[in-house]
Design a protein around this nucleic acid. Structure first.
Lengths: 245, 245
DNA sequence: AGAATGCTTCGGCCTTCGCCGTAACATCCG
DNA sequence: CGGATGTTACGGCGAAGGCCGAAGCATTCT
């Protein structure tokens, strides 16, 4: 089968440590330069250039030329989903001891991060849990549904629901959404159009801010208040559970 | 990050052509012996043994000893999902010309095959489409929902709905189901508990039968009648579209 | 017990490929 | 127009690992 060779090629490209680091860095959906990616992977610019060339030639990355910079990004959402699914397996196979002995950078990532176009980590799972508790969404590991009160809620807090509504089913008009297994929390959070819209809203409103050079995001004081008042979510700074009020 | 190394290891393991062939062969959910997998990968038994040892050590496969045979299978559903997601990317990146120039084995695979625990190919997509048309399920690329008439329908034709009903959401009791992007049809078919139950029923009733040494399945005459009468689905043998009556 | 089958281990060959140093090309800046 | 910065091309080094033949266990069959 022809696609079998393609399969192996894609997996092999993702399987080199340096390239894996680059893909990992790109998993937050932003476009990064070759130099930034070289630093992320811990290799020289020449080596990174070679890797990026191969990833782009295969179609996993797309490049955008801007002046003397070349911005690389994941070619499509399906590539992001593939990376997520590999991470899910990695998390599942990861011995528990390795998950406990991690540095402060990991702690920040586990607290809140972006996952291509939506929020993940304790924040992402916490927001999902809050919306479930309030009857705004229903979620399983396999699928999810956004309820009418949930649509009203999102509209209330100012989320642009148009891209979400565009995906409702043709027959009943119900709004389905995609869950994404959180590799650090091992529970589903909101992905798909809903997760993307919610994430975009958080950045627009200044509730969250990206940390440079990492996929981690910080919750601003304004965000703390908003998440508490609108969602009833408070993130414990000392690594504990998410609390719902 | 510790999981980053794990990520690269998993992808690298999946990225070798011989191992990719083995994983591919195991994607139908059955357990195969080392010799069968060696033949599938086109390598000698010694080489296959080495590969299988590495895949098992990493946790991607699980082994079951039975007499002088050792049966290998995918370790978990998340591994199967990962493989599917890589295939989805491969299908997306595949140039169209390569998809047209394929042999008869590919034709059989595209007509009907298993995808870990559910049906795929034109048959899988056709069944999904039929259930959508009759209002039994609603499906998007991201998620799906099984309607009350759909539950009744499945019960009518004798499907064991218990494992499906066990997954309904806690609040409203709605039954969500997982779509899976079909790499040959590029459209979603039914996966998750619903897809697994439906697939199991097809084999139980003798509607479909596995072809030895491949993931392809054949539709029996009895199956032809059942699919036509219960689903309104007829598969065109000459590679055309699925027809709904 | 002896033979056959399934699988694994070991040793050696050989290709692949990741890496960097050097150097060239491209773009922006003063 | 030089100089600085970002990126790519080339060549060579070295390690990793895939492959097989030969041989060794383990299990089953006769």
């Amino acid at each position: 089968m022809a696609s079998q060779a393609m399969f192996a090629e894609i997996a092999a490209l993702s399987g080199d440590p340096a390239r894996a680091s680059m893909l990992h860095a790109l998993l937050d959906g932003r476009a990064l330069t070759a130099t930034e990616l070289a630093k992320a992977a811990g290799v020289t610019a020449q080596t990174a250039s070679g890797h990026l060339g191969r990833l782009t030639a295969a179609g996993l990355l797309s490049v955008e030329k801007q002046g003397r910079h070349r911005y690389h990004r994941l070619a499509s959402a399906s590539v992001a989903r593939m990376l997520e699914s590999i991470m899910a397996v990695a998390a599942e196979l990861q011995p528990d001891r390795a998950r406990l002995s991690v540095g402060p950078k990991d702690a920040a990532l586990r607290r809140a991060r972006t996952c291509y176009d939506h929020l993940a980590g304790r924040l992402g799972v916490g927001l999902a849990d809050a919306m479930i508790a309030q009857g705004h969404v229903e979620l399983t590991n396999d699928a999810g549904i956004l309820t009418d009160p949930g649509i009203a809620f999102l509209r209330d807090i100012g989320v642009d629901v148009a891209p979400i509504m565009a995906r409702r089913t043709s027959r009943s008009g119900r709004v389905l959404c995609r869950p994404c297994l959180d590799w650090s929390e091992r529970r589903p959070h909101l992905a798909g159009a809903l997760g993307a819209a919610l994430c975009a809203h958080c950045f627009d409103q200044g509730w969250t801010r990206r940390l440079v050079g990492t996929r981690a995001v910080v919750v601003t004081p304004k965000g703390e208040r908003a998440f508490r008042s609108s969602f009833g979510v408070a993130l414990d700074d000392r690594g504990g559970e998410v609390r719902r009020g």
